[in-house]
């Protein structure tokens, strides 16, 4: 009797292990441990700490005092619109401009490697160097304005830096190559024979792009837009350097920085950072909801 029970018990444990293994739960999962620890220590904990901090305002007044202050003060509240006003158009332009260029370059094009290499350079330079370059080149006494004046296109230097335009230009310079490379890789993943097939079925160039390439590319563009937007939304150095950090380009990150490191109100700084994350997530969620309505399966190519 006892023997039978033990045997039954062992059988049950093996079958449990077996069932877990079938669902992918086995010892190889331990390999995840270092990554989990990393995420926990360097991401989850600081995030939770910041979140908690944002609900404990320095001057009291209840857990939501920081958020109430943020939304009641138009100077603070408007940073949301200022950030969106920079991030959305910049991301949109980067994605929209990269589509036709990547489309023309999807096949074998002479100088493709040279061009892609050239495009990677701004990414490696970083925003600070780009901002410096912009200040020198597009500033009131920069070459660009000098040239425009010499050519009599304008008689006053155009205000291209220390305002919205400057930050926008900087976001395009650093963000476009990134969007372009992503779009190009999504496009090369689409089987070129699909367009040939469409051609033999009577579709002209525009119809081929609209009905075959674009629908297959759209989910990739959604991802490209999201990543471009995240990059542009967290803009800080260029808003500070080529923008007008006290006015036109007082974006969320600058507001958060001011609160935390100028006024030493860490709690408010955290609250602004959280608001920034929520706004970003809202935009991403909207894009992802749209993406979910698209076809996202194989695109027939190698990619």
């Amino acid at each position: 009797m006892t023997v039978a029970v033990t045997a039954g018990g062992r059988a049950r444990t093996t079958s449990l292990r077996h069932r877990l293994a079938e669902r992918g739960v086995d010892r190889t999962l331990l390999l995840l441990a270092p990554a989990l620890a990393f995420v926990l220590v360097l991401f989850i904990y600081p995030f939770a700490y910041g979140l908690q901090l944002s609900f404990t305002p320095a001057e009291g007044g209840g857990a939501l005092a920081n958020y109430r202050e943020f939304f009641s003060d138009p100077y603070l509240r408007n940073t949301i619109w200022k950030t969106l006003g920079l991030g959305l158009p910049a991301a949109l332009l980067n994605v929209l401009a990269s589509v036709p260029i990547a489309y023309l370059m999807r096949g074998k094009v002479r100088g493709k490697r040279t061009l892609t290499t050239l495009l990677v350079v701004p990414i490696t330079l970083g925003t600070v160097l780009t901002a410096q370059g912009l200040l020198m080149y597009a500033g009131p006494a920069g070459w660009l304005n000098k040239l425009l004046i010499v050519l009599h296109i304008t008689d006053q230097p155009l205000p291209l830096v220390h305002n919205w335009t400057g930050v926008f230009l900087s976001l395009v310079i650093t963000g476009f190559p990134f969007a372009f490379l992503l779009t190009l890789s999504y496009l090369s993943g689409i089987d070129p024979s699909l367009e040939k097939a469409a051609a033999t079925l009577g579709a002209g160039p525009w119809e081929r792009f609209r009905r075959v390439t674009m629908p297959l590319l759209a989910p990739g563009l959604a991802i490209t837009f999201t990543l471009s937007f995240v990059l542009a939304f967290s803009v800080f150095p260029s808003a500070q350097l080529v923008g007008k950090p006290a006015g036109q380009t007082r974006v969320l990150s600058i507001a958060a920085y001011d609160a935390a490191f100028q006024k030493f109100d860490y709690s408010m700084g955290c609250a602004i950072a959280i608001i920034m994350a929520v706004v970003m997530l809202l935009v991403i969620a909207l894009v992802m909801v749209w993406r979910a309505t698209l076809y996202r399966g194989s695109t027939g190519g190698k990619g």
């Binding site: 024979s193 699909l194 097939a197 051609a199 009577g202 002209g204 076809y295 399966g297 695109t299």
Partner: peptide
């Protein structure tokens, strides 16, 4: 004549069906 105007049917080696 352009392929879209030529109107010949073509079957491709990898079928080239529109996946979407």
């Amino acid at each position: 004549v352009l392929p879209e105007k030529r109107g010949f049917g073509m079957v491709f080696q990898n079928y080239a069906l529109f996946p979407h």
